[in-house]
Amino acid sequence: MTPDPGTPGQTAPGQPAQAAPALDVAGLCVDVDTPAGRIRLLDDVSLTVRPGERLAVVGESGSGKSVMARSILRLGDTYRTTGSIKVAGTEVTRLSERQMSRLRGSTVAMVFQDPLGALNPLQTIGEQVAEPLRVRGTGRQEAERAAAAILEELGVARAAERMKAYPHEFSGGMRQRVVLAMALIAEPQLLIADEPTTALDVRVQEQVIDLLHEVSTERNLAVILITHDLGIVAGFADRVAVMYAGRKIQDDDAGRLFREPAHPYARGLIEAVPRIDHRIEHLVGIPGVPPHPGARPSGCAYHPRCPFRMDICEVEVPAERPLPSGGTVACHLFALEGNAS
């Protein structure tokens, strides 16, 4: 069970492909050029996702969550990316566009926010679900059989028949199942779900999250769930990364993060979630608004809103430091604690 720690400098034999993380992002920076100048959307983000692991990426809008998702699949045509993105061991920043389109769908796939907008209104459900296989040269009949099978597996009743229907004939929850089927049919190792439940009503949200959890377990599929809704994170994720103003500020085991959030921002986020077992007088929020990507504060971008602000926070960007719990945090408070202890 435990890997032998005594073989330095060499990968353990017999499991080279398995050992590669589903996603390994190191020092990722993303800039865009706007008429107002170059804006940094993502700043020095590093992140690792193990095969089969479920990671939630949380943060307010504008924190860079979706930018990260799109840059992993290289869907942002205006992005200027530096740093390294390895998907299942393959460095995607160096791939040609053709190699990249072969990787998309089969190694890493994505589920988007609005299930209606995510479907081509002019093609049948069947055509769209089968497409990732068709563009890889699978025959029509075989691809359609696979599409029917995966739709059925994801809970679309009478799938073979309903494949002839068009997206507008499906309900929101069913559409999201279709979108998920499209993402999974070519059997990727990593699925990025960008706010997959935001456009759905609460009951359907739950079903979709449960479904994601189920397929992740069954297929040993690594899932990155991007959301601003901490309520759906708790039951789903193994690990949570918190983003703020283009940086990852905390990365920790889900249970520990909810019990004892280290970063003041993470603390604020968790306290802001209304809880059914607590009587509250009024909703708690974090004072202030997240900064615009073009006008981020100096030092730690959170310092204007932080109740524990120190002088150093305005000047120096805090580095990521390991937490005693095993996670990491980027906050000067913990540098002090580390020095003190």
Binding site: L73, R98, S101, R102, M110, P132, V135
Partner: peptide, 20 residues
């Protein structure tokens, strides 16, 4: 539109993307 990004994320190559 989002379904174009979705089609790309499915691995649809550029020419097929334009035509379909």
């Amino acid at each position: 539109r989002e379904h174009i990004a979705v089609a790309r994320s499915k691995g649809v190559p550029p020419l097929t993307l334009v035509m379909h």
